[in-house]
Design a protein around this nucleic acid. Structure first.
Length: 935
DNA sequence: GACATCACG
DNA sequence: GACGTACGTGATGTCC
C-alpha cells in the first residue's frame, strides 16, 4: 500500500533510545555468561511500551527505527573536528549495539542504517518524502538537531517526558521558527557536537539576530548595521566559521535510499522470533509481559547458573526451582504447622511473612502468616479469613472454615519466632515485628532483605519486594491489586478467599527466601557487612519501639488552632477576591497566575512544565512590592498549609487506643542514610515561623513527665571540616567559636569584633551552599544578589579554604570512576547518573558532593540510636522521635538531668570507636512540657 | 497520577 | 557567554 494522506510515519532515533536505556538502568548482566545486557533490556522495554501505547489520533501506521553507522560522514570532510570531543562509548555499551539492532528486527520493525550517514540525515529524508506524499510524521527523539524538520505535518515526540514537540515547542526552545533553527545553531554553535558557531553568541543572542535580519547570509551581508561593536566584529571576523557551522547543522534530506515510506508499514511481530530473542537474552519478566501482550503462552526462560570457575566450591549447585505459586501449601491443622516449625528449627532458618488487614501496623489485624523453607517450598497459614459473604447479613463476624484457632497457632509460632537458634528472614521485618509485638510476640533474631538491598544498592533503585524480585530473581510478583482490588471497591485481606490468598502469601515468603540466598553472600563482596549488621539491622527494632511508643498530641489545642485558621483564611480570601475584582480559587496556582499575570499584567509571569503560570513564594515575594494582592496570597497559603497539613491532619492520626500519634519511619527512605517519616511525617513539623512553631505546643508530655530534646550542633559543617581537613574550621570548632562569623571574618577580612549580621548571614549561606554542592546561581538566588557577586564569594571561599574545592573535585572524581560515594562509616551511596550528560549531570554531581556529608551525619545519629536503649535502660525514659539531627525523649519528672547527661554522652561519642573525628561533636539540650518549650 | 507548592533538617 | 542548578525528604490540593 502506498504511503499518503491519512498515514502517519513514526521514525525512532535508535541511538538516542539506546543511550537513554543505558543511562536509565544499572549494569545488568546475562545470568548464564555475564554479558552486559542492561541497555538491551531497557531498549526492548521502551520499544514494547511505545508499541503498546500506539493508539489515538497520533498513532503510527508506518514505523522504523534508524541508527547511525560508521563514524565518518560528509561532515567530517567539511570539518575535521566535528564531534571530536564526544566521549568514547562506555565499554559495557559497545557490545550491546548489535544486540539492539537484532531487537528491532525481532520486533519486526524495519531497522535502518546507512554507512557514512548519520541517522539524522536519513530521518530528514524520510520525513521529507512522507510529507510530500501528504502524510504526517512523528520523529521520536528530543535531539535539538532534528528540530529544524518540524512543521508541515512533521512533529517530534520526547518519549522520556511523554511530550509532543510542535512548531510552538521549537519556537520555545530556539526563539525562531523551525525553518530558521539552522541559522540559530550556526551562530550559537554546539559544544556537544563541537560545532564552532560564533564565539560569544548563544542561542538567545542568535535568535535575536535571526529574527531581526533573517538567515545567515542576509545577516552577514548586513553585519555592519549591528549596533553592539563587539558583536558586529565577531560576526565579521568569523563569517566563514559561521557558514561552515551552518553546513554542519543543516541536515541532508536528499539521501539516496533504496526504499521509501511505503515500505515501512506497521507489521505484527512474529511471536516465535520475538520471544526467541528475548529468551536468548534471558529477560524473564519482559518475556512474560510480551507473551501476555501477544496472547501466547510465555516460554520458559532457562535459568542457567553462571559458569563456575574451575575449583569452584560447589559445582553441583542445582538450578533454582521455578516459581509455582499454585504449588504452595495451605496449612489448616496443627499437625502440619508443627511439622513445618520443626523443620525450620532443624534447619536453623526460615523465611517469614505476615498478612494483615491494612498498612498501619498499629491498627491492622493479623490475617495469616506464611513460611518458606527452601526455594519453591512455601506454605500459608490462614488464621482470620472471613467466611464468604459474611459481610452481607451477619455483621461480617463469621470466620471461614478450616483455619487453626488463632491462639493455638500463635502459641506454636511464638516458640519458633522467639527461638534464638532460628533465624527469621523477612522483607521489611519492622512491619511484621510490630504486628507481632502487639500480640505479645518478639521476633528475633532476624535478617531483612529490604535492609540488605538498602545497604548494597542505595541510590540505584527502590527496595520493595516487587522491585527486588523483578530485578534479582527475574520474577514478577502477583500484584496485591489482583486480590484486594483498588480504589473505592478495595477489600481487606481477610475478605480474600483462602485459596487465592495462599499463592500470594506463599510467594511473599518464597521470594524473600530466594532474595536472602541471593543477597547474603554479596554483602561481603560489596563491603557493607558492617553497615548492615552494625547499623541497619539493629536499628530496626529501635525504630519499632519508638513508633509503638508514639508521642502524645493534644487534640483540643489543634482543634482550637484549626478554628482560628479557618477564620483567618476566610478573611484573607475575601480581601483577595476584593483586590482581584473577582472570585476565584486562591488555592489554584493556575487561576492565581491568570489573575496576576493576565488580568493584572504584573511582570515576571513564567510558565512551568505544564505551560501554566508558576507562582512560587519567591515570585510572589517580589511582586509584593508592586501590589497588595501577592502578600495576601502568601499569608493565605501559610495559614492554609498549617491547617490542612498540620492542625487538621494530625488530629486524624491520633490513635484512639493510645491517644498518641505513631509515625512510621522508613529506614530505607533516603539514599543518603537519613530516615524518612510517614503517616504522619513528624520530621517536618513547623518551627521557622512563630505561628507555625505554636503547633509544637500540641506535642506534649504525659502527666508527671517532661519532653527532652537533644540535637547536634552544626553536625554537617563539622563533618565537612573533618573530611576536607579545613584547619581554620577545625580550630574554630575546637575552640567553640561562632563558625559563620569566623568564615565571614576569613572571607571578607572583617575582624570578629566588627562583624555585622549581614556579613555573617552571607557567610552562613555560603557554608550551607558548600554542603549542597554550591553554584553561583544557587547562592545568588538564596541571597538575592547578582550572580556575578555570588560567584565572587565562592571564588574567594575556595581561595581561603582550598581544601573544600579539593574535597569536591576528589569526591566527584571518585563517583565518576566507581559509580558510588561512601560515608566515613562505609555506607555506600550509588550515583548512577554521575556520567550522564546535560542538566542531570549537574544534579548528580551536587548530590555526590552532598551525600558523604549528609550520610555521615545520618550514620552518627543512627549509631547513637542503636546504643541508646541499653544506655538509658533503668531510666524512666523513652526515645520517641528522630528529626535528622535531633532526638526527642519523654522522661519522668526528676530524671531529666540524668537522661540529658546519659543521652548526650551517647550522642557526642557516637562516631567512636570506628571513626575518630578531629572536631568535637556538640549536643544542645532543652526540656519542657511540650515540644516547643523543649527547644 | 502528575504537578505545584511548602513544611522540615 | 551559554545552559540550568543549591542537598535530602513527605503531604496536600488542584487538575486532567
Amino acid at each position: 500500500m502506498s504511503f499518503g494522506k491519512g498515514h502517519h510515519l513514526h521514525l525512532i532515533d535508535g541511538s538516542a533510545f539506546i543511550f537513554r536505556a543505558y543511562h536509565a538502568l544499572p549494569p545488568l548482566t546475562r545470568r548464564s555468561d555475564g554479558a552486559p545486557v542492561g541497555a538491551v533490556a531497557g531498549f526492548c522495554n521502551m520499544l514494547q511500551r511505545y508499541i503498546a501505547a500506539n493508539e489515538g489520533p497520533d498513532a503510527a501506521t508506518h514505523l522504523a527505527v534508524i541508527f547511525d553507522k560508521g563514524s565518518h560522514t560528509f561532515r567530517n570532510d567539511l570539518y575535521e573536528a566535528y564531534k571530536a570531543n564526544r566521549e568514547e562509548m562506555p565499554e559495557e555499551l559497545r557490545p550491546q549495539i548489535p544486540l539492539t539492532r537484532r531487537a528491532v528486527e525481532a520486533f519486526n520493525i524495519p531497522c535502518i542504517e546507512l554507512e557514512g550517514f548519520e541517522a539524522d540525515d536519513i530521518i530528514a529524508t524520510l520525513a521529507r518524502q512522507a510529507r510530500e506524499a501528504g502524510g504526517r510524521v512523528t520523529i521520536v527523539s528530543s535531539d535539538k538537531d532534528l528540530m529544524q524538520l518540524v512543521g508541515g505535518g512533521v512533529e517530534m515526540f520526547d518519549a522520556m517526558k511523554n511530550r509532543r514537540i510542535d512548531v510552538d515547542g521549537v519556537r520555545e526552545k530556539f526563539g525562531v521558527d523551525p525553518a530558521r533553527v539552522v541559522d540559530v545553531q550556526a551562530l550559537a554553535g554546539d559544544s556537544v557536537d563541537n560545532v564552532p558557531g560564533a564565539p560569544g553568541i548563544g542561542v538567545k543572542t542568535a535568535a535575536l539576530l535571526v529574527n531581526e535580519f533573517g538567515d545567515i547570509e542576509t545577516l552577514l551581508a548586513r553585519a555592519e548595521e549591528i549596533k553592539q561593536p563587539k558583536r558586529r566584529q565577531t560576526l565579521i571576523d568569523h563569517a566563514e566559521q559561521i557558514r561552515l557551522s551552518k553546513s554542519l547543522v543543516q541536515l541532508d534530506d536528499n539521501v539516496t535510499l533504496d526504499f521509501g515510506p511505503d515500505d515501512l508499514e506497521l507489521r505484527e511481530p512474529d511471536p516465535d522470533a520475538l520471544l526467541g530473542f528475548l529468551t536468548e537474552m534471558e529477560f524473564r519478566t519482559l518475556t512474560r509481559r510480551i507473551a501476555e501482550a501477544l496472547g501466547v503462552e510465555p516460554p520458559v526462560v532457562p535459568d542457567v547458573a553462571p559458569q563456575e570457575e574451575a575449583g569452584g566450591d560447589d559445582p553441583e549447585t542445582p538450578a533454582p526451582a521455578p516459581f509455582e505459586p499454585q504449588a504452595y501449601i495451605c496449612i489448616r491443622d496443627m499437625g502440619t504447622l508443627a511439622d513445618w516449625i520443626a523443620r525450620a528449627r532443624a534447619q536453623g532458618w526460615v523465611a517469614f511473612d505476615t498478612e494483615t488487614t491494612g498498612l498501619d501496623e498499629m491498627r491492622c489485624e493479623l490475617v495469616g502468616v506464611s513460611l518458606a523453607l527452601a526455594p519453591g517450598e512455601a506454605a500459608y497459614v490462614p488464621l482470620a479469613h472471613k467466611a464468604d459473604g459474611a459481610d452481607d447479613l451477619f455483621g461480617g463476624e463469621a470466620l471461614a472454615e478450616g483455619q487453626i484457632p488463632m491462639e493455638e497457632a500463635l502459641a506454636a509460632l511464638r516458640d519458633l519466632l522467639e527461638d534464638d537458634a532460628v533465624l527469621k528472614i523477612g522483607q521489611n521485618v519492622k512491619y511484621d515485628a510490630k504486628v507481632l509485638a502487639r500480640l505479645g510476640i518478639r521476633m528475633a533474631p532476624f535478617d531483612d532483605t529490604l535492609l540488605m538491598s538498602y545497604a548494597m544498592y542505595s541510590g540505584l533503585h527502590g527496595h520493595g519486594m516487587d522491585t527486588l524480585s523483578e530485578r534479582y530473581l527475574g520474577h514478577g510478583c502477583i500484584p496485591i491489586k489482583e486480590l484486594i482490588g483498588s480504589g473505592k471497591s478495595q477489600i481487606t485481606f481477610d475478605r480474600v478467599p483462602i485459596d487465592k490468598a495462599t499463592p500470594y502469601a506463599g510467594e511473599d515468603a518464597d521470594v524473600t527466601l530466594r532474595l536472602w540466598q541471593h543477597f547474603k553472600p554479596q554483602l561481603h563482596a560489596a563491603h557493607v557487612t558492617r553497615v548492615y549488621e552494625r547499623m541497619e539491622r539493629p536499628l530496626a527494632p529501635v525504630l519499632a519501639r519508638m513508633e509503638m511508643a508514639g508521642v502524645r498530641v493534644d487534640r483540643d489545642t489543634l482543634s482550637r488552632m484549626s478554628g482560628a485558621f479557618s477564620q483567618k483564611m476566610a478573611a484573607l480570601e475575601a480581601e483577595i477576591h476584593e483586590l482581584a475584582g473577582e472570585r476565584f480559587n486562591v488555592g489554584s496556582p493556575k487561576q492565581l497566575g491568570e489573575i496576576l499575570f493576565d488580568k493584572m499584567s504584573l511582570p515576571g509571569g513564567k510558565h512551568g512544565k505544564t505551560g501554566a503560570y508558576a507562582t512560587p513564594a519567591d515570585v510572589l515575594e517580589d511582586l509584593a512590592t508592586e501590589h497588595e494582592l501577592p502578600r495576601k496570597v502568601l499569608d493565605w497559603r501559610a495559614v492554609s498549609k498549617l491547617k490542612s497539613t498540620y492542625t487538621d491532619a494530625l488530629q486524624e492520626h491520633i490513635n484512639p487506643e493510645t491517644g498518641r500519634v505513631h509515625t512510621s519511619y522508613v529506614q530505607s527512605g533516603a539514599a543518603t542514610g537519613r530516615l524518612a517519616s510517614t503517616d504522619p511525617n513528624l520530621q517536618n513539623i513547623p518551627i521557622r515561623t512563630e505561628e507555625g512553631r505554636r503547633i509544637r505546643e500540641a506535642f506534649v508530655a504525659e502527666e508527671g513527665k517532661v519532653l527532652v530534646s537533644l540535637d547536634y550542633s552544626q553536625i554537617e559543617l563539622r563533618i565537612l571540616a573533618h573530611i576536607a581537613g579545613i584547619e581554620q574550621l577545625r580550630t574554630a570548632f575546637r575552640e567553640g567559636q561562632d563558625i559563620h562569623a569566623m568564615t565571614a571574618s576569613e572571607m571578607f577580612d572583617v575582624p570578629l569584633d566588627e562583624m555585622t549580621p549581614e556579613i555573617r548571614r552571607r557567610a552562613k549561606a555560603i557554608n550551607f551552599g558548600v554542603i549542597y554542592g554550591i553554584s553561583g546561581f544557587g547562592l545568588a538566588r538564596n541571597l538575592r544578589i547578582p550572580r556575578g557577586e555570588a560567584q565572587g564569594f565562592i571564588d574567594r571561599y575556595f581561595e581561603r579554604f582550598p581544601g573544600i574545592r579539593d574535597y569536591m573535585d576528589d569526591t566527584v572524581a571518585f563517583a565518576r570512576e566507581h559509580g558510588r560515594v561512601e560515608t566515613l562509616f562505609g555506607r555506600v551511596i550509588h550515583t548512577p547518573e554521575i556520567n550522564a550528560r546535560g542538566p542531570r549531570a549537574g544534579f548528580a554531581r551536587r548530590a555526590a558532593i552532598n551525600a558523604p556529608i549528609q550520610g555521615t551525619a545520618a550514620d552518627i545519629i543512627r549509631r547513637a540510636m542503636v546504643r541508646m536503649p541499653a544506655a538509658i535502660e533503668g531510666l524512666p525514659a523513652e526515645m520517641l522521635l528522630q528529626v535528622h539531627d535531633e532526638l526527642l525523649f519523654e522522661v519522668e519528672q526528676g530524671a531529666e538531668d540524668a537522661l540529658i547527661s546519659t543521652a548526650r554522652e551517647v550522642m557526642e561519642g557516637a562516631a567512636e570507636p570506628v571513626v575518630k573525628l578531629d572536631v568535637p561533636l556538640v549536643v544542645d539540650a532543652g526540656q519542657g512540657a511540650n515540644w516547643a518549650a523543649a527547644h
